[in-house]
Nucleic acid binder design. Structure first.
Lengths: 243, 243
DNA sequence: CGTAAAGTTGAATTCTTTCAAACACGGTGG
DNA sequence: CCACCGTGTTTGAAAGAATTCAACTTTACG
């Protein structure tokens, strides 16, 4: 009702088929086309790193099930969480195919991934796939820009409201929600490092949201109690441009 | 000395040939290859909008000369500056080829741009170009992520130091610097809207930098007075990953 | 059941914003 | 040539938001 469920009638920053075209069929249960391209599957357990910042052996991966978080620790020891990677999304592509990774990728829950061929030669012969790759990167860029706009000039409760709705939205498009509840493996510290706040302030704000009956996070489950209030706080950032 | 001048020996978020391969030859003066692909040139004057947020008639453009800034005004009236587009860089690509623009593009100085074919059909037949497009988007994404990391958890002087060096670096790679001085058309308000600060606080911080002999902005010229101090403040964010 | 990890709370401090006003500068027209 | 005007910059004082530091409670897990 608030979110549009596909990108056909307007601009939608994250639709299930936002990445490789074959991801769509993958998500729909038919993985024949996907298997034709994929090299092999990987299963990882919670808290396991897929790769770490600086690693050279980069691979292009698609997340099939689970939850992956992209983080980077800077020189001063502070940690930046860039984003969460949700099922059907791509991770691991960067400017230099075999350069060092900018950030680490860690699985927050038991996950299943799929390696995808990653070489200039391969994509040069597959124009549609290369174009899908460009589209995928454009989506990631837009998501990052949305977070940039969310953090810039905005207060803690607005930032948190945005983040909660953004992730809820993205999961909902994949049918991974249960009414207004989603699985949410992020710690308060992760939220803080995503939004540029301290863990303490995130805690206080979440506490206030709970008291006000707006939002609740309990036992790795996030429940939206008052969608309208959250949406107003988030500032309609889910619809870039006119509908 | 601090910055590496190309992307061959390590990870460089912004090298002159970061975008379409033919941009490189363009920058080097030989534009034959470029002209073969390009549709036509456009000259715009300072303060002219190339397109505005919500516009549907999107075009893929390459900036040949000048300075373009990408901005968006959100519902609450606040303005977000996403980034500056410098000569040789691409702008206008997004997930949906003919969807509404997320942000406005405005030329800050007299500029020259070049239209590039922008259709699924065109790129489907040109795998190398599509791959260049993906690489270009990956570069933009990295730049946005750097700014995200810069704003998150960092104080005003660190943010400003980073921004000054980042832009200086990007211009230097194109040979558009004069020793430690660059042309800098951004107003203090633009810096504020880029970094999530108020104009007033930017002003105070710049004033302090000038007094300390670190950085100076005068008459649209930015001069780095103490590189070492700025670099320390910026936090080595120019080299993602190990050298 | 004990230890570590995650979450919670309070008080003081720091950074940044807000509001209000003045100043500098370039361009315009009389 | 000078007054005028708008834009952009500068400054001060008060208020507000978020951080820091420290301690405590609860939860998760072997």
């Amino acid at each position: 009702m608030f979110f549009r469920s596909n990108g056909s009638t307007g601009l939608c920053y994250s639709c299930p088929n936002r990445h490789f075209r074959f991801c769509k069929s993958l998500l729909n249960g038919s993985s024949a086309e996907f298997d034709a391209h994929a090299v092999k599957n990987i299963a990882v357990i919670a808290k396991q790193y897929l790769y770490r910042q600086g690693d050279m052996n980069n691979e292009l991966l698609v997340l099939r099930e689970g939850w992956v978080m992209l983080t980077r620790v800077s020189d001063d020891g502070k940690r930046q969480v860039f984003r969460s990677v949700l099922p059907g999304e791509l991770l691991g592509f960067q400017q230099h195919f075999h350069g060092p990774a900018i950030y680490s990728a860690i699985a927050l829950v038991d996950s299943v991934l799929c390696k995808v061929p990653n070489s200039v030669e391969y994509y040069s012969t597959q124009p549609e796939l290369a174009l899908s790759l460009a589209t995928s990167e454009a989506c990631d860029k837009m998501l990052t820009e949305m977070y940039l706009g969310n953090i810039t000039h905005r207060k803690a409760r607005e930032r948190i409201a945005f983040m909660a709705l953004e992730i809820y939205h993205r999961l909902m498009l994949r049918g991974l929600n249960n009414e207004y509840t989603i699985q949410f493996p992020l710690k308060q510290e992760d939220i803080a490092d995503t939004l540029g706040l301290t863990t303490i302030h995130v805690n206080r704000t979440l506490h206030a949201f709970r008291d006000e009956g707006v939002l609740q996070i309990h036992k790795h489950q996030l429940t939206i109690l008052d969608y309208e209030v959250l949406y107003a706080l988030a500032g309609s950032r889910f619809e870039f441009g006119p509908i």
